[in-house]
């Protein structure tokens, strides 16, 4: 009754877009990682096997970026998951203010990360906001983003700030699906607040926790804007991340093959981590 052929026609725009802008690029990336490629003439000049991978694995800057990225991912994903959970529980108890609080905490996550990065570049600068607080409390002012020790933690702190409101929304949605009777029964049995959180809230939110951790991990592995705007990988490579390393390889050194190898490695890392987390958190669930 519905004309089949026209249905296919309806599907065509997505199919074309998928083929040209998703499927083909993924395949192309994989292929490119085994080739020498010059986009500005000649195209693929030579197949080099695993040479691109060997080259990046032999580069100490790659490993620097690798370590920094892992530090960033762990440093932002775990605190964000915890803080936004606590935030959600607190907001959920706030009664009439709930809508207003939820909205307010969410605002930072609709501001573009480029603007957020600029704000924090200023906050972290020598005569910026953070130093005004630090000196007021008797500390010494410093250049947060120019110190190899402090630059990466500073970016991590900013990222946590920018994401907690966003992830709190997911927890809030999860909290509202927990039946009130569970809480009432627990209270009748004389359970304290902590016990209720530990034995009712936490287990009920497990699927949301998995979701928040996995989604945030996938995002955190691709950290890029912050680095471009705040540090350009410096000082002394201390904020070099994998995607920034890939960007430099591709567009500063015009080594598309090696850059594609990095892209594939990051892709594999993301897929691996996501699967691992789903597994891990499932086990925790059955243990609780």
């Amino acid at each position: 009754m519905i004309p089949r052929r026209s249905l296919l026609l309806f599907f065509l725009p997505w199919l074309v877009s998928f083929a040209v802008f998703s499927a083909y690029p993924i395949g192309f990336s994989l292929g490119l990682s085994f080739a020498d490629y010059n986009p500005f003439g000649g195209g693929i000049t030579r197949w080099v096997g695993l040479e691109n991978y060997r080259a990046i694995f032999a580069d100490s800057l790659f490993w620097r970026s690798f370590t920094n990225t892992i530090v960033f991912v762990v440093g932002t994903v775990l605190p964000t998951a915890g803080i936004s959970l606590i935030l959600a529980v607190l907001i959920n108890r706030s009664g009439r203010l709930l809508g207003c609080l939820r909205g307010g905490y969410f605002i930072p996550s609709v501001v573009s990360l480029a603007a957020v990065s600029l704000i924090f570049k200023y906050i972290y600068s020598k005569q910026g906001f953070l130093n005004a607080i630090v000196t007021m409390m008797g500390g010494t002012a410093r250049d947060w983003l120019l110190s190899p020790k402090l630059a990466l933690p500073s970016i991590i702190a900013m990222d946590i700030w920018a994401s907690i409101g966003y992830y709190a929304i997911f927890y809030l949605a999860g909290l509202q699906t927990i039946p009130q009777e569970l809480y009432e029964a627990a209270r009748m049995d004389g359970a304290g607040r902590l016990a209720i959180f530990r034995f009712i809230t936490l287990p009920s939110l497990k699927p949301v926790i998995v979701f928040v951790v996995v989604v945030n991990t996938i995002r955190a592995f691709q950290v890029f804007v912050e680095v471009v705007i705040m540090t350009r990988g410096g000082p002394m490579g201390s904020t070099m991340t994998l995607i920034y390393y890939m960007y430099e390889k591709a567009f500063h050194r015009i080594n598309m093959g090696a850059a594609s190898a990095v892209a594939v490695v990051v892709f594999a890392l993301i897929a691996g981590f996501a699967l691992l987390q789903v597994r891990l958190l499932r086990q925790v669930r059955s243990a609780v």
């Binding site: 997505w14 040209v20 690029p25 993924i26 990336s29 986009p39 996938i218 890939m246 892709f267 993301i270």
Partner: peptide, 23 residues
């Protein structure tokens, strides 16, 4: 396929999209 593409990280598109649109 629709669900799979939702999860593909954007970074993998960077080089192929650039070279394709460049050509």
């Amino acid at each position: 396929l629709v669900i799979a593409t939702m999860m593909v990280p954007k970074h993998i598109m960077m080089i192929p999209l650039f070279t394709m649109l460049y050509r």
